[in-house]
Nucleic acid binder design. Structure first.
Lengths: 205, 205, 205, 205
DNA sequence: GATGAATGAGACTTCATTCAT
DNA sequence: TATGAATGAAGTCTCATTCAT
């Protein structure tokens, strides 16, 4: 399957008015995704909803995929930033606290726009072969790995790599599952406890 | 988003010839998904690939979604059965061994048709509002919960519920991530070790 | 400029009903070309005019180009056949007579559907890089060259090649010009005389 | 088909800067036609390639057709001028020499920008119902007719008219065919010989 | 004069689905 | 039951052209 489509935004919105339009388009995309699902979301509908002509839409985004991807990336970037910030501000705290803060922060992020996030998670074919997402992952993983390397100086590189992968995706996967099937968990301290325990006992094992 | 589409297979294939046709259709669906992606998979193409007329396809499946769903369900059922069988055959073994067997089995299942599973995981909008998948989860979760209840008689119901959710989805999520981003992990004993450790230390914490 | 588009008709019209549909589509194409010009001719308009749904049109022809090309080819084939038939039926007649008969026949062919022919000549971007037309030319040229080789056994191959090219395209070009700018010439014996003289004096020079 | 579109250039470029812009636009048009073909040549692309804004383009040319037409006219005028000049400078030479000089000159003209000329010949729907081209023809034909009238004082007007039409378009048609299908002929003296023979033997017949 | 963002009609094409045979 | 021609709504996207700045 060749999914190498052009998904880069077309015009960098440097003007104020343009930025507003891009914003409106992304918002409309989110609304359509939430209310109609990915398949039924069309560029025409997005444009209409954004109060913009279809031609204008195509001046900014070359395709439906590009719009959705831009939306996904936004969310992904919020998360990535969070990971980086939390780790850097808590470098010296005990592992359990770092884990807990990170988990709380991630849970918080996922309580915003839960409908949109649910759609992005379930409705959106992972465009562009996951490429951009892995990229994001790679950057976040880097930060986590560095942190773990410092905490667990005796573990070798391969082990650290695995620990990074396992701890990150265990948490991320569980939060996503919660978002989909148990939204109430996202605000439940008991759930956060559980995730902390999972990660901390694992890492210290 | 109202996604209550009819996705039940139409004709129970009780005749031999019919069963063969259903089989051919599902196989063709899998092939199309792998080679063309979900969006470009069309019922006409599936029918042609299955060597069946489009009219006949619609005698067995009411929609494209139904075909894809049937395929997903198959895979899900293989997994669910596995969980049940493994647990029932290993009821008295120590926790660590049970976990390890279960994990090995799940890894094995995900090494079959990895391309198809990847597509199902990434390309297929979760049709029917996840309903059927949750259903499956519910059944598997039941078995796991029962097992945990027996193993950890002192924990209360809420706690057991949480433990079930966390351990199941941590493992499933990690295996899915491995399938997408680190396929080599699926056959790597170190990865299985790691997953076991994750689950066992967590449960015993 | 890459003009390698798929222009082969899609479904061979083996059924009676299908043949009628193809016919209707080609006729509608001709009408649209004549009344709207090439640029304004759209597949939608053609389909509507043919009393056929747009989807049906696309079952038989993959594009607008394919329709127009099929129409052109028809005309080209009528001409090619004419050249072959006339030459084969008049093989032993004196050169002047052969020329005159050929020219009369070509003039006659160009008096049918002059509007359509004019459009094909002036409005239709030569699709597919002229390829198919040259093909036609090649076949006709073959027949003419063979005839000339017999008539003028002393001339060498290069010369015969040139004579073929010049005599064929001089006549064809002049008839096309007449079609465009002097339609009355097509039925004027004086014009036919002139063309005969042109070719015969040239060949015998 | 009513193709009476406004195709006159808009602003007479009397200023230097304007003339440069018109020049740039025509050049860009030629480049686009050659590299993209007529259909895919768009005013936006032309403007970008000319380094001019789309708005400015429309200040000089009212439409895409106008641009292409201006380009065609240029070429046509080069030819027309050539015919006039050659005839006037060679008025007293023998017919064969006049013909040969004229043909050599025309061949030379068609060796410049052969790609552009090919596109103009094959890709460009003859805009404006050929009107402007016939106009050009009329002027050239006038000169040729006058020349022939002097050379062949005994032939009557109708005959001269026909001779003019036939000799002009035989040569032009053959050169165009050569351009399309046998570009090597354009520089081949044997081809020039052949054309001379064609015209001279015809006229003297 | 120059700009270029915006427009929106309309082009081409696909595809799930039906239904007469 | 099986077929597959037919449908036509709807999707994606382009492009000539305008007009406010």
């Amino acid at each position: 399957m060749d999914t190498t489509i052009d998904t880069a935004p077309r015009r960098a919105p440097r003007q104020k008015r343009s930025a507003a339009k891009v914003e409106a388009l992304l918002e409309a995309t989110a609304e359509c995704l939430v209310s109609d699902g990915y398949d039924r979301t069309s560029t025409n509908r997005i444009a209409r909803r954004a109060g913009v002509s279809i031609g204008t839409l195509y001046q900014y985004f070359p395709s439906k995929e590009a719009l959705v991807l831009a939306l996904s990336r936004r969310q992904a970037e919020r998360e990535a930033e969070l990971v980086r910030n939390t780790l850097s501000s808590l470098g010296q705290a005990p592992l359990r606290e770092v884990a807990r803060r990170l988990i709380d922060a991630l849970l918080l992020v996922h309580r915003d726009f839960p409908d949109l996030q649910r759609v992005l998670l379930t409705q959106v074919p992972l465009i562009g072969g996951l490429a951009s997402m892995r990229e994001f992952d790679a950057r976040s993983a880097e930060v986590v790995r560095a942190y773990l390397a410092e905490r667990f100086p005796k573990r070798n590189a391969a082990r650290l790599e695995l620990m990074t992968f396992v701890s990150m995706h265990a948490v991320e996967g569980l939060i996503h599952q919660a978002l989909l099937a148990r939204p109430e968990y996202l605000a439940d301290p008991a759930f956060a406890d559980e995730l902390s325990t999972l990660v901390v006992t694992y890492l210290e094992a």
